[in-house]
């Protein structure tokens, strides 16, 4: 099934294995209380989905047979959303290196974004309504690569977020100075 593994370059000029590998970084977990926030937010969405679908089913029941089937499916989806959000908390990490920052997320559908400091445009820290109740903040790092290239780290203590932000901005400033 598997093909023989390929190399990035057939004829590399540099030793690829000597490059710092992103997979071997120390990954920092988010604040444990953030799991609660995720479950609360997901539950709110789930409740809305369940209420809307069953109200609709109850209202249409006299006219449509089997209308409860989609409602049951929506309920299962809602439960799945809550469960997935709870579980995926354990797969969310960030990693800070000398020259870049990475954020990893997702349990089944994994994704990891890395931004070099010398490409950072600006950072901001936001505290959502629920976040604030639990003393959390989220840090967003913007590049010129548009929305899909932005990196958002949720579930941080405001102090940590502030510290990370000033570290990144410092590093960005420094990299620009050496550039010109």
């Amino acid at each position: 099934m598997m093909k023989p593994t390929e190399n990035l370059f057939e004829n590399p000029q540099i030793d690829l294995s000597s490059l710092p590998a992103v997979e071997q970084m120390t990954m920092m977990p988010l604040e444990p209380v953030y799991k609660k926030v995720r479950i609360i937010v997901a539950s709110l969405i789930a409740i809305v989905l369940i209420v809307v679908s069953w109200t609709f089913a109850w209202w249409q029941a006299p006219y449509l047979t089997y209308i409860h089937v989609p409602a049951i499916l929506v309920t299962l989806l809602a439960i799945w959303i809550v469960a997935y959000n709870g579980i995926s908390f354990h797969y969310m990490f960030y990693a800070v290196r000398e020259k870049d920052i990475s954020y990893q997320s997702g349990w089944l559908w994994k994704s990891m974004t890395t931004i070099p400091y010398n490409r950072v445009q600006h950072c901001d820290i936001r505290e959502g309504l629920i976040d604030r109740q639990f003393g959390l903040a989220k840090l967003t790092i913007y590049t010129a690569g548009g929305q899909s290239a932005d990196l958002m780290i949720p579930g941080l203590l405001p102090e940590t977020a502030e510290k990370l932000k000033s570290y990144i901005l410092d590093a960005t400033e420094h990299s620009i100075e050496t550039e010109s």
């Binding site: 990035l8 690829l16 490059l19 710092p20 992103v22 020259k99 490409r119 050496t178």
Partner: peptide
Amino acid sequence: QTRVANQARDYILYRVETEKRSW
């Protein structure tokens, strides 16, 4: 291939981070 993707990421980051030219 995951191996190629990871190597490509590491290489791109290395190139960007050691680059002196402005993008």
